[in-house]
Design a binder for these strands. Structure first.
Length: 156
DNA sequence: GCCAACGTTGGC
DNA sequence: GCCAACGTTGGC
């Protein structure tokens, strides 16, 4: 099993929204970055665990945990001319972009802020900390475990 | 809203 | 294939 971190803008879709959609989960669409696409297409598997990260908002950080319930399939929005995720160069035969389906597992009592993560020496080589801009990124197991322990230490 | 860092595009 | 120009992400 692999661990991941998926970014989302909570104004668009938050951990609370993910909790509401239930066990079928939410289609994680609109990823238009090749590196992120390659991770989803080649490495994300059913059962993988995902940190849900809130970006571009007042409180940025890890808000909770989700689980992959469906591996990569063509992102339906790339074929929809009215969608902002439409890609005219993508075809049904050879889709350029994929999506995965994510279900809710847990919302943290208290969001783990990016500022706190940046203070942790064991996380110095984490992708989130040293390469901020990737919206789908792998998380090493040692980092995953460390962050869960860090969460346990936080006052709620 | 600013701006740094990174990605993508396209001329050559 | 290089690289300048432009676009986007995302923290602050």
């Amino acid at each position: 099993m692999n661990y991941w971190l998926f970014k989302t803008e909570p104004d668009e879709f938050s951990i609370d929204d993910l909790a509401k959609v239930g066990p079928e989960g939410e289609c994680w669409e609109g990823i238009r970055n090749y590196q992120a696409r390659n991770f989803m297409r080649d490495k994300v598997r059913v059962g993988d665990k995902v940190f849900i990260y809130h970006s571009s908002c007042k409180d940025v950080g890890i808000a909770g945990i989700g689980e992959i319930v469906k591996a990569a399939f063509p992102d339906p929005f790339q074929f929809n001319p009215t969608s902002k995720y439409f890609d005219e160069k993508s075809t049904q035969e050879n889709p350029r972009w994929v999506a995965v389906q994510v279900a809710f597992i847990e919302k943290f009592d208290k969001l783990i802020p990016l500022s706190l993560l940046k203070q942790q020496p064991p996380l110095e080589d984490m992708v989130l900390v040293n390469r901020g801009r990737l919206s789908i990124q792998p998380v090493e197991e040692k980092h995953w475990q460390f962050i869960l322990a860090l969460k346990g230490q936080q006052l709620s």
